[in-house]
């Protein structure tokens, strides 16, 4: 049975890299370009695939700043129908992000909310379960496969010791694992067409009540010898000697 699906997919824009602040020698992301969070990209891909299979719409939502516009455009180029950029993001605070996102979608019609399991910068994995809790809708987390049948969604969650197949009535909340698919790369034509897709921008009035105090933020020191051999035979010789010494042979 085919049902047209209304899918909302959440994508996070994250810094492409971290740099060393020349003054403090600590990490900074000031002036660093944003990219689409890795597993958000898998969520976008899965949303597009479900839409292609069942018909319907897929809308991207991001809580960020103006700088996230390019990331949203990339998701539109991949195949989302429209985008919503909510401004007012002030750094990693998962319960706040969850409440902004949950509040935003509580006013909308949808069948599926799609998330990445865990983001590549803060990797808290808190946002999807929290949104699911706030909206009192079922959660299928870390899904490696998904199937929609009528009004239900079935998914297999990958856990460390076993896999669990779940079934939930829609509307439902899904977080996908990186293994679920290989995201497509948009073509130049799609990138150009994306600029005509609707992208609405709004502002969130979010207030944090978090009791968090950063005591230190540093680069972990790696004190490796970094002795590199480009001559394979010499390398094998030396490494074998090191291994023999460590092994006490």
């Amino acid at each position: 049975m085919y049902v047209a699906l209304n899918i909302l997919v959440f994508l996070k824009a994250i810094p492409e890299d971290v740099k060393e602040d020349p003054r403090t020698h600590g990490p900074t992301v000031e002036g660093v370009k944003l990219k689409m969070d890795d597993i958000s990209r898998n969520a976008v891909e899965e949303a597009i695939r479900l839409k292609e299979k069942h018909g319907g719409r897929a809308t991207g939502i991001t809580f960020g700043s103006d700088a996230a516009t390019l990331v949203m455009k990339e998701a539109l180029a991949m195949g989302l129908d429209e985008g919503v950029l909510i401004k007012g993001y002030a750094g990693n605070n998962p319960s706040l992000t969850a409440s902004v996102l949950a509040e935003r979608v509580s006013r909308m019609q949808w069948d599926l909310l799609m998330f990445g399991f865990s983001s590549a910068d803060s990797y808290t994995a808190q946002v999807p379960p929290m949104v699911s809790y706030m909206l009192k809708r079922p959660l299928i987390g870390n899904a490696v496969s998904l199937r929609v049948e009528g009004k239900t969604v079935k998914g297999v969650s990958s856990y460390e010791d076993y896999n669990v197949a779940y079934e939930a009535e829609m509307p439902a909340v899904i977080s996908v694992a990186q293994e679920i698919n290989t995201p497509r790369i948009p073509t130049l034509l799609q990138i150009m067409a994306a600029s005509k897709k609707p992208l609405s921008v709004e502002q969130a009035q979010a207030q944090s009540a978090r009791t968090l105090q950063v005591l230190g933020h540093t680069f972990p020191m790696s004190q490796r010898k970094r002795i590199i051999f480009e001559d394979t035979n010499k390398g094998v010789e030396e490494v074998a000697a090191v291994l023999r010494q460590v092994l006490g042979k």
């Binding site: 998962p94 808290t124 994995a125 808190q126 809790y133």
Partner: peptide, 22 residues
């Protein structure tokens, strides 16, 4: 773990507590 990471945020919301990951 991949299941624990789902249980903990829901538990935190249920007891209205803050949570830190990993």
């Amino acid at each position: 773990t991949n299941f624990g990471r789902q249980v903990a945020p829901i538990a935190a919301q249920l007891i209205k507590a803050e949570m830190e990951s990993e």
